[in-house]
Amino acid sequence: MDPYSPEGELINLHSAFHAGAYQIVIDFDTTPISQAAELPARVLKLRSLIALGRTKEVITELSGEKTPDLVAVRLLAEYEEGNDVVDQARKLVERHGSDNLTVQLCGGMILSRAGEVEEALALLSKHQGSLDAVALIVQIHLQQNRIDLAAKEAQRARKWAQDSLLVNIAESWVGMREGGEKYQSAFYVFEELAQSNQSQSAHSLVAQAVSELHLGRLPEAEAALQQALVINEKYADTIANMIVLNTILGNTAETEELKAQLENVNPEHRALAEWREKREEFTRAMGRYSPKFEV
């Protein structure tokens, strides 16, 4: 069913993809693979390009494609570009959503990112034993703050997918919300990813750093983040978490510098966007008080 399952030939590619080692995915030699796996491999490569911000390449490459999978990926790229493709995505989903995994995944991502969370969940729930879909469902539940549902989803996936990497990762995401001992378990998963050659990436290192940060191990977190910066100094999440770390350490100057960096790399990053919003709230709340100054 799942072309990425442990028995499948794309297991390594899939693992690297989910560890965020996009370059490895792109550089992956796909010539020896079977014809059946060709399309899924291509999809992964295209999605990796999108993840690296090379959306325009993807759009151009796929502009004439009619295969639902590739259309879905194109729509995702376009969404990433900032185009409103929600309606197109809906149409695609209507036609192919019930059996095409790529359509389900890309459609689910577009819908959930567009705020159509229930719709996205309904679509993703149609998957036929895909861990990708499960991971996405878990993430969406976590974004909804429904840790309970996310945990249930991960738990059920563990029943049939046993110790798959993606199940572990998804469980770790949940664990990062649950806290306590789960922080440590999550750390083990992220660390394993981050320290193996196959999957080391800014993505996985940041995940490791974040788990360490939550465990209160700040020097280790910093080391991991520095390592991530070496791999990719423009990875927004690295910088965003670096800001958090420096704030906790009380390094005001560094924090400001990092914020400027982040502003450069991705001005729409949540770390910045959220504070902009909060700042307004602060000003509004502050306005309820009218301090009197002595002159």
Binding site: H18, G20, R113, L213, V244
Partner: peptide
């Protein structure tokens, strides 16, 4: 903190 999660999805 911002935890990178699914590829092509915003971090958690």
């Amino acid at each position: 903190t911002y935890l990178p999660a699914n590829p092509n999805m915003p971090s958690l």
